[in-house]
């Protein structure tokens, strides 16, 4: 029996060989039943792609439940029980994501771009179209707006959307700490056109980190040429350990000044800070720092 039939988690799992074969057999039986339900008895056959989608949906639900549940009793439970529990888990994820969407709609940043607005208006369609019973792994809407830290593509379905919106809300909460005129000016200097499909959080977070690295109040966001040189000394040409420590300290300072107390938000900003390291070490301050830490004048 081909192990490719088994959900990802069970391919790695130490299922006894006999149970593994029985599991794959149960999975096929369930697939046949789900296919019949999908066609509502109108058709004995489906396209290969449809069967593949249905199998992926079943496997994803089983995998989701094993991850949610810890997967300790995977071998003892029937495929049907695992699948039905997985459908419930997927529906729970969708309900959670819907709450996060409401939060996103209620807490928009002072400045938006086209990609941001389009994605926010597209996301409600996900909840209308999402089919946890047949295709729990799919994301039936357009999500174009890029986050500063992209969600892993290993996450699927409502799980992906929930994580995407969780990060989205963290980014928006950060942006809401700044005024619209300041943000607009910063975008004008850093990305030129806020109508482009670019992330809105990264330029602001990086500018705030730059202010913190040069020992200045972060709310201003803009840097001077002296600041660039100071950042270069502390990060660009410093030993890596010291540079990383400086970036982490800057993230801490930004959090303190902006009143960011949530652990997840702090970790998100720290990741943003550490992601600056290769960029700041790759060029001289005169050559590329202005794109990261825009000058006011």
């Amino acid at each position: 029996m081909n192990d490719a039939l088994l959900p990802a988690r069970l391919q790695r799992n130490e299922l006894a060989r006999g149970r593994r074969e029985a599991f794959a057999g149960e999975l096929l039986t369930l697939l046949a039943e789900r296919t019949e339900r999908y066609t509502m008895g109108d058709s004995t056959s489906v396209r290969d792609e449809t069967a593949e989608r249905l199998l992926r949906g079943i496997s994803y639900c089983i995998d989701l439940h094993l991850r949610t549940d810890g997967g300790e009793n995977a071998g003892a439970q029937s495929v049907r029980v695992l699948y039905e529990a997985g459908v419930k888990d997927a529906k729970r994820q969708a309900r959670h994501a819907k709450l996060l969407l409401k939060q996103a709609e209620a807490n928009r940043p002072p400045v938006e771009n086209v990609g941001f607005a389009d994605t926010l208006s597209s996301l409600p369609a996900f909840f209308k179209r999402y089919d946890a019973v047949f295709f729990a792994h799919e994301i039936p809407c357009d999500i174009d707006y890029p986050l500063c830290h992209a969600v892993s593509e290993e996450l699927l379905g409502a799980e992906y959307v929930a994580e995407y919106l969780r990060r989205w809300n963290m980014e928006c909460a950060f942006l809401r700490r700044f005024g619209a005129p300041l943000l607009s000016l910063l975008y004008e200097r850093s990305i030129g056109d806020a109508g482009l499909l670019v992330n809105l959080y990264a330029p602001v977070a990086e500018a705030a980190l730059g202010r913190a690295l040069s020992g200045k109040a972060v709310l201003n966001l803009f840097a001077g040429k002296e600041d660039h040189r100071r950042i270069y000394e502390r990060v660009g040409c410093a030993p890596e350990v010291a540079a990383r420590a400086a970036l982490c300290a800057a993230a801490e300072r930004v959090c303190k000044e902006l009143g960011i107390t949530g652990g997840a938000e702090q970790a998100y900003l720290q990741n943003t800070a550490l992601a600056l390291l290769p960029r700041l070490r790759a060029c001289a301050p005169e050559a590329g720092y202005e794109a990261v830490f825009p000058l006011r004048g």
């Binding site: 046949a32 296919t35 004995t44 056959s45 489906v46 396209r47 290969d48 069967a51």
Partner: peptide, 12 residues
């Protein structure tokens, strides 16, 4: 490019 589970359409 199709798959048929369970009973076939041929008897029909």
């Amino acid at each position: 490019g199709r798959i048929e589970f369970g009973k076939s359409a041929v008897p029909k």
